[in-house]
Amino acid sequence: MLRSLTTWVLVGQRLGIALITLVIVSFAVFFATEMLPGDVAEILLGQAATPEAVAGLREAMGLNEPAFSRFLGWLGGLATGDMGRSYVNDIEVVDLLGRRLGNSLRLAAVVTMICVPFALTCGIAAAMWQGSLLDRAVSILTISVISVPEFMVATLAVLIFAVWLGWLPALSYGADATSFVALIKAYAMPVITLTCVVSAQMIRMTRAAVIETINTPYVEMALLKGASRRRMVLRHALPNALGPIANAVALSLSYLVGGVIIVETVFNYPGVAKLMVDAVATRDLPLIQSCAMVFCVSYLSLITLADVIATLSNPRLRQ
């Protein structure tokens, strides 16, 4: 299909807005972490924190330069892939973060592959047969899942699969699994928990988006042309609900990178969220800042992607 120039201008605008937002966010992240109480040099030196040593270390770390020039330096470093060195264990942040991010993304990818098709099918089916037994069952189930804290879903999963049935290990060391079966077993519990939590959100939002388009005159018109319920929903309502659905999916998925702290804790899964929490405890500024940027970038790119999909799926905006 031929897309006109204005389409790409619109897409370009979206990307531009995302980029500007990213700069604002990086600004906020940098100065928010700067405001964390406690002097880095003092913390690093611990027992050996004599005033002279602290002053020397501050000088060496460039902490005495004005905050804004440090911000620009940091931003430039980020743009070229240099995230600085960890204060605590003196490793390149890129290496530290890279390994954890790989773990997080692997988990997110598996959950996404299961969750998106499942949630979309459930949401659309519930909307299609609105008020039916299926719809009610889906509504009750999703409302129960989103009403319950995540650690309850996780502990319930442990109780059922690890304690009572004994099928799966209670802890997960995904990265170290050797055989395929071991790999599946290692991932099963976090995946089950996250799938439950994320798809409940997605199902509810998808269902609401589809129902909103079902109540439009053009869907009634399709009914008056003799179309079946199935055709009304799939041919007429769904294509017009694509924008809101993409948005719902993006919002739910953005949760999978940073929002999984409980799951990472309960199953002892080495992901980015846990890395950041540990970094805060040790005041490891470069690491905290980099982690925060990872979350914001993933959120922004998902939201922007949804925005672009919405733009491309709407012929009004397209031409």
């Binding site: 953005s254 702290i261 925060a292 914001c296």
Partner: peptide, 23 residues
């Protein structure tokens, strides 16, 4: 709106964790 939208991108539980751990 832009500012608060950007803030929305930070995972809520994680933000809470960071603040509480810090303060």
């Amino acid at each position: 709106s832009r500012l608060l939208d950007a803030f929305n991108g930070i995972p809520s539980l994680l933000f809470g964790l960071v603040v509480v751990a810090a303060v």
